[in-house]
Structure formats: C-alpha cells, structure tokens
C-alpha cells in the first residue's frame, strides 16, 4: 500500500499551474520544451505557449489561465526590455502579483536589474533542474 499512501499524500499538495513561453522573435524553443517536460514529470501543470508571443497575449494568458507563475525563456539579447514590457503590462491589467521567472541565456550583470523589476527567479545556463523544480513548486498557492 506504499504507493497508494504516497499518492494520497501528494493529493494534499496544490497543483502548480505554470505558464511557459517565449516573447518576440526568439525561436530557440528546445530549452523551454525540455523544461516543460521536466515540470510535467515533477507534477506541474504547464500551460505551454511556445514561441512568438506578444507581451499582451502573455499577460492575458496569465490571467485567463489562473497561472501561479509565468516562465519566460530567452536566447536573444533583448530580454531586459521584453521583461520590462511584460512586467508593465501585467501591472496594467492587474496581474502583477503573479510571479515571473526567467530562463535561458541571462547575463549575470543583468540579474539585479531584473530582480529590481520584480522578477522572482532567474535560471540561466547551468542551472540545476532540481532548483528550478523546487522554485516552481514553491510558487503554488494553497487551494
């Protein structure tokens, strides 16, 4: 009965809903697909938006999907500006309490600026899977 007991325990944990997507012209979707798969295996419901999203579309999705957090993946240089725009749009439509995390190629020199904007987690190249999963899980709200 070990497995059933574990399942019963897991059922008391809230299921985290995590929006994952890329903004603008960024097309390197391999990383975000890998993360989506890993989070699924970690018990997270990933709302997968893929590439080429608009800032408005992403923010609206966070609201309509009742996301617990928004994850952005970047592989181009414009991430500071894109993140600034998204955070502003989320604030405009009343979604600024939904945490944002970043992944991909994020230069350490930019971390402080991003945190100052309100970004809650940054997972650049070399981040440990376990750390990402732990962070995402910690964003679940009690239901």
């Amino acid at each position: 009965m070990q497995t059933d007991f574990q399942a019963e325990q897991a059922e008391d944990q809230p299921i985290v809903r995590c929006l994952l997507g890329m903004l603008g012209t960024d097309v390197h979707s391999k990383g975000i697909r890998t993360i989506a798969q890993l989070l699924r295996e970690a018990g997270v419901e990933v709302i997968y938006l893929g590439e080429h999203n608009s800032v408005q579309g992403m923010a609206r999705a966070a609201i309509d999907e009742d996301a617990d957090l928004v994850g952005l993946s970047f592989s181009s240089a414009a991430y500071v500006e894109y993140t600034r725009q998204l955070v502003a749009e989320m604030k405009r439509i009343g979604a600024d309490d939904i945490p944002v995390m970043l992944g991909g190629i994020i230069h350490p020199d930019d971390h402080q600026a991003l945190y100052d904007m309100g970004v809650r987690g940054i997972f650049g190249a070399g981040s440990k899977t376990a750390d990402i999963i732990a962070f995402v899980r910690s964003m679940g709200r009690p239901r």
């Binding site: 897991a10 798969q37 419901e45 990933v46 938006l49 080429h52």
Partner: peptide
C-alpha cells in the same frame, strides 16, 4: 491529459489559438 504518474501535464492547445490572445 494529466500524467497518471506525476499528476503533471503539458497543456498545449492554447498555443494554436494565440492569434486571439488580444
């Protein structure tokens, strides 16, 4: 579908409908 093992899921339908996002 949810994974019967992890209870996680990748919900990928919305990505086909993003032109209506705004």
């Amino acid at each position: 579908p949810s994974s019967p093992y992890s209870r996680g899921a990748v919900l990928g339908d919305r990505v086909r409908m993003m032109r209506h996002a705004d």
